[in-house]
């Protein structure tokens, strides 16, 4: 049952991920990405990580992708001049990533059975509580650094959008 649902979610995720870059119309790519986010959330549910599943949908599908759609609709990108020119660069980077993956898998070998204990412990203590506790104890420093980076990005975006904010005139 578990491996069957993984097979379904995994297949759909890979297929829709390919569609995102292969489709010609930007709006169709966004729809494919939406389907993919939903299946990733489904994968989280099968791992008993309901909190992550909900956050996945709220943040990625509900906020970020809506902004993408907004931009795609506003810019009204033509079908032809989108992503097709970076084919060589993309191919090179893809091969590099594939080689890396092959090396890691061959060096470490695939585990017999994924560890189930952390999932069980999380289910016992409550998924949300476990994530929260881990974020604010074990991973406090990376968490704070990530929020600082986001703050810097926000300030940068405001600076770029508002030209005269530093006092210079046009």
């Amino acid at each position: 049952m578990g491996s069957l649902s993984f097979l379904y979610f995994g297949t759909v995720i890979v297929l829709t991920a390919i569609l995102v870059v292969a489709l010609r119309k930007p709006v169709s790519s966004v729809i494919a990405l939406l389907v993919m986010f939903f299946h990733i959330a489904g994968l989280f549910v099968t791992l008993h990580a309901e909190f992550l599943a909900a956050v996945q949908i709220i943040v990625y599908a509900g906020a970020i992708l809506v902004l993408y759609l907004f931009v795609v609709m506003l810019l009204n990108v033509k079908e032809d001049d989108s992503y097709q020119r970076q084919f060589r660069l993309g191919m090179g980077l893809g091969l590099l990533a594939l080689a890396e993956l092959a090396y890691i898998v061959s060096a470490a070998g695939l585990a017999e059975e994924p560890a189930r204990q952390p999932a069980a412990a999380a289910a016992a203590a409550g998924n949300t509580e476990t994530v929260g506790r881990a974020l604010y104890t074990t991973y406090l420093f990376p968490f704070e650094v990530a929020s600082l980076i986001l703050l810097v990005a926000m300030i940068g975006a405001i600076l770029m959008a508002k030209k005269g904010i530093m006092g210079e005139s046009k």
Partner: peptide, 25 residues
Amino acid sequence: DVNIGILYILAFASIGAYGIILGGW
């Protein structure tokens, strides 16, 4: 009675926006 009840509602409420945006487009 899902243990993430309110988050579940928020998640699907945010999906509802797609209907409006895509319908308009």
